[in-house]
C-alpha cells in the first residue's frame, strides 16, 4: 500500500515536472515552483535525519566504550559547538559561528584537499611508467596542460601555452561533449524509468 502510494507520487510528480516545461500557464509555473520548494524542504529534513543518525552512532560508540570512543567525543563536541554558536549568536559575519568556520573548519577542509597533492604525485609516477600508447597519450596531455598553465612552460617553449589551450579547446572538448551527451541520454532514460515506475530501487531495493 505504502509502496504503491510512493510509486504513484513519483509518477505524478515526475510527469508534471517534465510536462510543465511545455506549458506556459502561470498556474503550472507556480505549482512547479511550489514543488521545487517542497523538494528542497524534504531534502533539508533528510539532512536532519542524517545528522541524527551520525549522532546516534557516536553516542552508542561512547556508551559501549568501543575502540576510538574518545574521537567520537571530539566529533560530538564539534557538532555541539557549531550548533550552540549558530543558534545562540547567529550565523552572520563577525559571529563566533563564522569565526570557527573561518579559522578551524575551512582551513582544515582545504588542508585535507591539499593532502591529495602528495598522493596524486605517486599516481603520476605510476602513470609515467605506463607502457601502453593510450596511457602515454594521457600522460603527455597532462604534462603539456600543466606546463602550459605555469610560467615554467612558457620559459621552456613559448608555444607550450598555445598547445595547452588547443588540447583543452579541441580534443579534450570533443571527448567532454561526447561524455556529456552520454550522461544526458543516460539520465533521461533513468528518469523515464522512474516516472514509469520501472525503476524502484529508491524504495529500498525491491
Amino acid at each position: 500500500m505504502r509502496d504503491r502510494l510512493a510509486i504513484i507520487t513519483a509518477t505524478l510528480a515526475g510527469a508534471f515536472m517534465a510536462l510543465q516545461y511545455f506549458i506556459t500557464l502561470p498556474i503550472a509555473n507556480s505549482a512547479y515552483r511550489a514543488i521545487l520548494s517542497w523538494m528542497q524542504i524534504i531534502a533539508a529534513f533528510a539532512i536532519v535525519v542524517g545528522v541524527f543518525g551520525v549522532i546516534r552512532l557516536h553516542l552508542e560508540r561512547i556508551g559501549r566504550k568501543r575502540a576510538g570512543w574518545l574521537y567520537s567525543v571530539t566529533l560530538l563536541a564539534g557538532v555541539l559547538v557549531m550548533t550552540i554558536l549558530g543558534f545562540a549568536g547567529g550565523i552572520d559575519r563577525g559571529t563566533s559561528f563564522q569565526w570557527v568556520f573561518d579559522h578551524w573548519q575551512a582551513p582544515m577542509q582545504s588542508t585535507v584537499f591539499s593532502l591529495l597533492a602528495f598522493y596524486i604525485a605517486s599516481a603520476a609516477y605510476r602513470g609515467f611508467r605506463a607502457r601502453s600508447g593510450e596511457s602515454a597519450i594521457l600522460v603527455m596531455a597532462a604534462i603539456i596542460v600543466m606546463l602550459g598553465r605555469v610560467p615554467l612552460g612558457e620559459w621552456l617553449s613559448p608555444i607550450l601555452p598555445n598547445v595547452s589551450d588547443w588540447i583543452l579547446n579541441v580534443p579534450a572538448l570533443a571527448a567532454k561533449r561526447a561524455i556529456l551527451i552520454g550522461i544526458g541520454l543516460g539520465m533521461v532514460a533513468t528518469s523515464l524509468k522512474v516516472i514509469a515506475g520501472l525503476e524502484r530501487t529508491y524504495l529500498g531495493g525491491r
Binding site: 515536472m17 524534504i42 539520465m187
Partner: peptide, 22 residues
C-alpha cells in the same frame, strides 16, 4: 516506511525536472 512517500516526491520530481533540463 512512510518516509518513502516523501522520498518518492523528491526522486520523481527530480526525474521530471531532469528530463527537459538534461
Amino acid at each position: 516506511g512512510w518516509s518513502r512517500i516523501s522520498l518518492a516526491l523528491v526522486v520523481g520530481g527530480g526525474a521530471g525536472v531532469a528530463i527537459p533540463a538534461m
